[in-house]
Simulated assay, not measured.
Amino acid sequence: MLSCMDTGEKDFQRSLGKESHRGNTYAEVVFTNHIIITAGEEHAAPQRQSAGWETALAPHTGAEDARVTSLHHCSLHVVLLNIMAAGFKTAEPLEYHRSFLKENCRPDGRELGEFRPTTLNISSISTADGSALVKIGNTTVICGIKAELTMPPSDAPNKGYIVPNVDLPPLCSSRFRPGPPGEQAQAASQFIADVIESSDLINREELCIEKSKLCWVLYCDIMCLDYDGNLLDACIIVLLAALKNARLPEVTINKETDLAEVDIQKKRHLKINRHPVGSSFVIFDDSIIIVDPTAEEESLSTALLTVVTDEEDRLCAVHKPGGTSLSGEKLQHCINRAITRNKEISKLVDKVIESMKMAK
């Protein structure tokens, strides 16, 4: 598994114990060399003898009492500030985010134009003809491809099928419910189908085995395992990687019996014509644009935008489901950022594919 690291999230947590005890017991919380050591209450001291534990076990002097009290008050102040921040975030989430945006940063520590770490793994499903798993931050999506033989469509007798389907089960987020696909899942499936068509990802004529008689249909099942925003970007990456990983057996039609004969010993990779990659943006307060939004940022934004480009810097698709209007200048800025993102993801995909070949 390899990853494309744009930036790491910054998450600082501190713990606070109870008040210190005196006598032959040792302090609940002792700060030594920038490490917080939490000890038990009225327990026998640990056998490990280190400078930190020696301080914890030594009888308290007046100076030590003052030091522990000072540190206790300082830590208590930090805890209170964290509690107040958490309360502010819950009560006024939009104002909470605005307080960060004013400083050109975000609550998770990223700058406005930074993507979360992107991780890619291929051949994730052994029973599929091709598969991949992608993580963008916490958002995790897996894709499995199953190939079946069928008759070509009557309106395109020399072409095969590519059928994408995006599934958003309840396990990925509490916002989704069991049952038929919801509106967001259906919209994502249609968007992926449009990207496949507009980007010329695969030449469907190569999926045809014999005109008007036999062709391949590729069922591309994309399932979200953990939803934290930016679903479309993850779906495009995982589909591209799974298609590059897919292998189809050789199929011929017996002239005497007119039946298909499949040779599973001879398999070939699909020919990928283009490498589309999506970049998603959200707009805050009708003016501030940030990339790779989390689920919370998406819910608080005034508009969403996804730009898809290929490796030749061609614009393949622009998806903007309503919301705040965007000036031509800002749209061009988003397209330029999407072109850069395409190069980053293309390198990641090629590196993972190459590493798999080396492993074999």
Results as ranks from 00 to 15, higher is better:
Ser124Met: 09
Ser154Lys: 11
Asn121Arg: 11
Leu232Ser: 12
Lys211Thr: 14
Leu2Pro: 05
Val307Ser: 00
Leu133Ala: 10
Val308Pro: 05
Asp258Ala: 11
Pro276Ser: 12
Cys215Met: 00
His269Leu: 09
Phe100Thr: 01
His21Asn: 09
Gly322Thr: 02
Ser131Trp: 06
Ile253Leu: 13
Ser287Trp: 08
Gly87Asp: 10
His34Ser: 13
Ile237Tyr: 01
Ser131Tyr: 01
Ile162Thr: 13
Glu183Trp: 01
Arg204Ala: 00
Lys347Asn: 15
Ile202Pro: 13
Glu311His: 08
His97Arg: 15
Ala317Trp: 01
Ile283Val: 06
Pro276Ala: 07
Thr309Glu: 00
Pro249Gly: 03
Thr127Glu: 14
Leu81Trp: 04
Asp6Thr: 08
Ala66His: 12
Ile272Met: 11
Arg67Tyr: 14
Cys334Arg: 05
Gly160Gln: 07
Asn336Ala: 03
Lys357Asp: 12
Glu256Arg: 11
Pro157Phe: 04
Ser189Glu: 01
Glu250Ala: 10
Ser280Gln: 06
His97Lys: 13
Val291Glu: 05
Asn33Cys: 04
Phe281Gln: 00
Gly130Arg: 02
Leu76Pro: 00
Asn165Asp: 02
Phe191Cys: 08
Leu80Met: 08
Gln13Val: 13
Arg22Pro: 04
Gly17Trp: 07
Asn82Ser: 14
Arg314Met: 03
Leu94Ala: 15
Ala295Glu: 14
Ala241Asp: 04
Thr257Ile: 04
Leu331Glu: 05
Ser20Gln: 10
Val318His: 01
Glu28Trp: 07
Met151Val: 07
Glu311Trp: 02
Thr309Cys: 15
Asn230Lys: 14
Ala132Tyr: 02
Ser50Trp: 05
Cys235Thr: 15
Ile83Pro: 04
Asp11Met: 10
Gln184Thr: 10
Thr90Asn: 07
Lys267Leu: 11
Asp11Ala: 05
Asn165Arg: 13
Arg268Tyr: 10
Ser174Tyr: 01
Ala188Asp: 03
Glu54Val: 06
Leu348Cys: 12
Glu19Cys: 10
Ala66Trp: 06
Leu326Asp: 04
Ser299Val: 05
Cys105Thr: 15
Cys224Thr: 08
Ser173Arg: 00
Gln13His: 09
Val318Ser: 03
Leu259Gln: 13
Ser124Leu: 06
Leu232Phe: 07
Cys105Asn: 12
Ser189Ile: 02
Gln186Leu: 00
Val238Gly: 14
Gly160Asn: 11
His34Glu: 15
Gly179Arg: 05
Val79Arg: 07
Arg48Asp: 14
Ala246Asn: 03
Arg67Ala: 11
His333Val: 02
Arg67Phe: 15
Gln49Ala: 15
Leu248Met: 04
Glu311Ser: 11
